[in-house]
Amino acid sequence: MFEPIERVPGDAILGLIQQFKDDPNPQKVDLGVGVYRDEDGVTPIMGAVKAAEKQLIDDEATKAYIGSHGDPQYGEHVLKMVFGAESAVLADKRASATQAPGGTGALRLAADFIASQLPGKSIWLSDPTWPNHLGVFSAAGLEIQRYPYVDAQNRLDFDGMLAALENIPKGDVVVLHACCHNPTGFDLSADQWQTVLKVLKDRELLPLVDFAYQGFGNGIDEDAYGPRLLAENLDEVLITQSCSKNFGIYRERTGCFIAVARDTEQMENVRSQLAITARENYSNPPAHGSAIVATIFNSDALYQQWHDELKTMRTRINDLRKKFVAGLEPHGLADRFAYVAEQRGMFSYTGLTEDQVKTLRDEHSIYMVGSGRANVAGLNDANMEYVCNAIASVVK
């Protein structure tokens, strides 16, 4: 029965990981994998997370299922983190939180919900976007369309984005990145969010906001500007959230799907459908990651520790961006790559071509995905000059 099954290429990023591991060059640099790294190239466990886990070992009383919507405490904390503790959306009980297996699980939950409850609606993705968006939404049977996001000069193409949004059929779904746009690092300003809001209203479009990097751009509240603006001014908003990055718990698969409705009754209707969708998909989400997050939020001391650690990570990444541009100045390339310092989050859309990326890998053992997306957190003081020299050589 398996004879007709063909072998397909593996995931590009996972393949890049293996190539990097097999490379004997002691100067090799990994700028491909999307995880935070410290100055020593390690993806650390946050001190607040370690302390929370120790507390859980002593206090955890059961390993029973946590239900299709997940841990209620976790959901409450995530809603407050996303919308703010004083949010009118929360006060009016318009938002529902359904815990999911990571941000990717939340996206699949959103995709299945849209496919089953909003049939016939296309979903619009930025060009470029996180590659797995295509896989997740396609697997759910949704028709995918694209709107421009980066222009030929490797700058945010807001005019092109706006023109496309203004022509999307009414009722379609638009995926927006709340902050730290993956893969480009180009984020919308407050004024641009206001303009997008107007178009969404006028065209009666449903926004699906991918919020995977809260706290990695400019701060917890600052990064939530877009989602909060939309939720406060639109009747219906979908948000997929992740704690993988800002808590450094990638392997614990801790995400959340948030649905904002016109009123409490409509929200409960949506919530009932989400329970069924989750049940048919993965039944119950994993509990350990959500317990870590809830434990941290339930302790003033742990919350402050986590907040300080996240700020350190954010500051380091933003400093690396500036150092990278400064490192290219001796090569006369600082102006060309100045946008890297303006971008936010772990990723940078460098503008390097696929051939240049291949040369960096083959001749310098510097690894990034073929699109030129680089994980800035893979840089450090020890490899910065090496990377800048290598990039200068392939660009020139």
Rank of each mutant, 00 (worst) to 15 (best):
Phe2Cys: 08
Glu3Phe: 15
Ala12Val: 15
Pro24Lys: 06
Lys28Trp: 10
Leu31Asp: 07
Val42Trp: 03
Pro44Gln: 12
Glu53Thr: 13
Asp59Pro: 06
Asp71Thr: 05
Pro72Asn: 11
Tyr74Pro: 03
Lys80Tyr: 02
Lys80Ala: 14
Lys80Arg: 15
Gly84Tyr: 05
Val89Ala: 00
Leu90Arg: 03
Arg94Gln: 01
Ala95Pro: 11
Ala95Leu: 03
Pro101Tyr: 10
Gly103Trp: 04
Ser116Val: 07
Leu118Asp: 12
Ser126Trp: 10
Asp127Tyr: 02
Asn132Tyr: 01
Val150Gln: 02
Gln153Ala: 15
Gln153Asn: 14
Leu156Asp: 01
Met161Asn: 01
Ala164Leu: 08
Glu166Pro: 00
Asn167Glu: 13
Asn167Gln: 13
Gly171Leu: 03
Ala178Glu: 12
Ala178Asn: 08
Ala178Ser: 15
Cys180Leu: 07
Pro183Ile: 12
Asp187Ala: 05
Ala190Pro: 01
Val196Ile: 15
Val196Ala: 08
Glu204Lys: 13
Leu208His: 10
Phe211Lys: 05
Phe211Ile: 08
Gln214Asp: 04
Gly215Asp: 09
Phe216Val: 02
Asn218Met: 13
Gly219Cys: 10
Gly219Asp: 14
Asp221Thr: 10
Pro227Ile: 01
Ile239Trp: 00
Ser242Pro: 06
Ser242Cys: 13
Ser244Pro: 00
Ala259Cys: 13
Val260Trp: 02
Ala261Cys: 08
Glu265Met: 14
Gln266Ile: 05
Ala278Tyr: 08
Arg279Ala: 14
Tyr282Glu: 06
Asn284Lys: 03
Pro286Arg: 06
His288Ile: 06
Phe297Trp: 10
Ser299Gln: 05
Ser299Lys: 03
Tyr303Pro: 03
Gln304Lys: 11
Asp308Asn: 11
Lys311Cys: 15
Met313Ser: 14
Asn318Val: 01
Leu320Gly: 09
Lys323Gly: 00
Val325Leu: 14
Glu329Leu: 14
Gly332Tyr: 14
Gly351Leu: 11
Thr359Glu: 13
Ile366Leu: 11
Met368Ser: 04
Val369Leu: 07
Gly372Phe: 04
Ala374Met: 15
Asn380Thr: 09
Asn383Trp: 10
Glu385Tyr: 02
Ile391His: 00
Ile391Glu: 08
Ser393Val: 09
Val395Cys: 13
